[in-house]
């Protein structure tokens, strides 16, 4: 197992290299640059700026400068937020995104599996219809509709919670609910399907035949098998949740890192976009690895040696 993890981690290095290289040149292909504003700058001032940020050097030189800095953990200065380095921005934003993302994940996992399992056990009953109906609803309504609605309802009309902003635990409730609702829906549906299938599988039938109590049959044997598709879904989902959501952060005014991707891309903030790409890629790689390890633990048939 240990050698497997090590091998995977080593394999991530060339993957990261390819991602960084492609991203570096792709963002440069986009027309314009970080200093193009609605009102163009004096050519002389533009020259001064380009010199200050190495933009006057050939692209391949800039690429190697970037790679060299990246290897030392330096993601460079941000062009659109010049009082901060990209690392500074992530130091402030990442903990915020992780807090909200992991809370939503946790809620989605617990509520989703419980609802899904209940629906599976009471298949074709009103409980099942309720869960499936609500889940379909939850998946189809986009967050950019739910978020302002929740903010309007609980923030403006009722005044129970802050309509937006960041600071106390109260500020977290609405964004976490918004983020977890569609995840709950997906997890519930996956759990339901997988549990129904697991309940019909041979090893569960065997467990029943042994006369094990239903609690054990469902809780240990069926659910464990049913978790496989949920886990493989949650890996990439976690990577995207923890790296922040543009929509939720913008609507609730949360200082996470989700917005940097869009702000960086629109402002041609090359280093900020690159930094976001690196962070997201890292999260995806790590979570895929976690999923694979969990797989081996959940399903005894999977072996990585």
């Amino acid at each position: 197992m240990f050698t497997y993890v090590l091998r995977r981690l080593l394999g991530a290095v060339p993957t990261m290299f390819v991602i960084v290289t492609i991203a570096f040149f792709m963002i440069r292909l986009a027309p314009g640059g970080p200093f193009d504003l609605e009102r163009p700058l004096d050519p002389l001032i533009m020259q001064n700026l380009e010199r200050a940020y190495n933009f006057d050097k050939p692209l391949w030189q800039q690429y190697f400068i970037y790679l060299g800095n990246l290897a030392q953990g330096d993601l460079g200065p941000s062009f659109t937020r010049r009082d901060f380095s990209v690392v500074d921005l992530f130091r402030v934003g990442l903990p915020v995104s992780i807090q909200i993302g992991s809370l939503s994940m946790l809620i989605a996992l617990i509520v989703g599996t419980v609802l899904g399992a209940l629906a599976a056990l009471r298949q074709n009953s009103w409980v099942d219809y309720m869960v499936v109906g609500t889940a379909t609803f939850g998946i189809t309504i986009p967050t950019f509709v739910i978020a302002p609605l929740l903010s309007l309802l609980f923030g403006v009309l009722m005044g129970w919670l802050p309509a937006g902003g960041w600071g106390t635990w109260k500020h977290m409730i609405l964004p976490v609910v918004t983020l977890s609702l569609p995840q709950i829906a997906v997890v519930a549906r996956l759990t339901r399907g997988a549990t129904i299938e697991a309940l019909r599988s041979n090893h569960v039938r065997t467990a029943r035949a042994y006369g094990l109590p239903t609690r054990v049959v469902v809780g240990v044997h069926a659910l464990r098998a049913a978790m496989l598709p949920v886990v493989s879904y949650l890996g990439p989902a976690a990577a995207s949740l923890l790296t922040g959501s543009v929509v939720v952060e913008t609507i609730f005014g949360i200082p996470g890192i989700g917005r940097y991707f869009v702000q960086g891309a629109l402002g041609r903030d090359y280093t900020l976009v690159m930094g976001t790409v690196v962070v997201i890629a890292l999260f995806v790689i790590v979570f895929n690895l976690i999923v694979d390890i969990l797989y081996a633990w959940l399903d005894p048939r999977v072996r990585y040696d």
């Binding site: 302002p148 903010s151 403006v156 005044g159 937006g164 913008t250 609507i251 005014g253 702000q263």
Partner: peptide
């Protein structure tokens, strides 16, 4: 000073008295 790239967000927080 609170940045509001999304103007509708400012309106909601204004109405909520924030």
């Amino acid at each position: 000073y609170i940045p509001f790239e999304e103007r509708a967000t400012c309106l909601r927080r204004f109405e909520a008295g924030e």
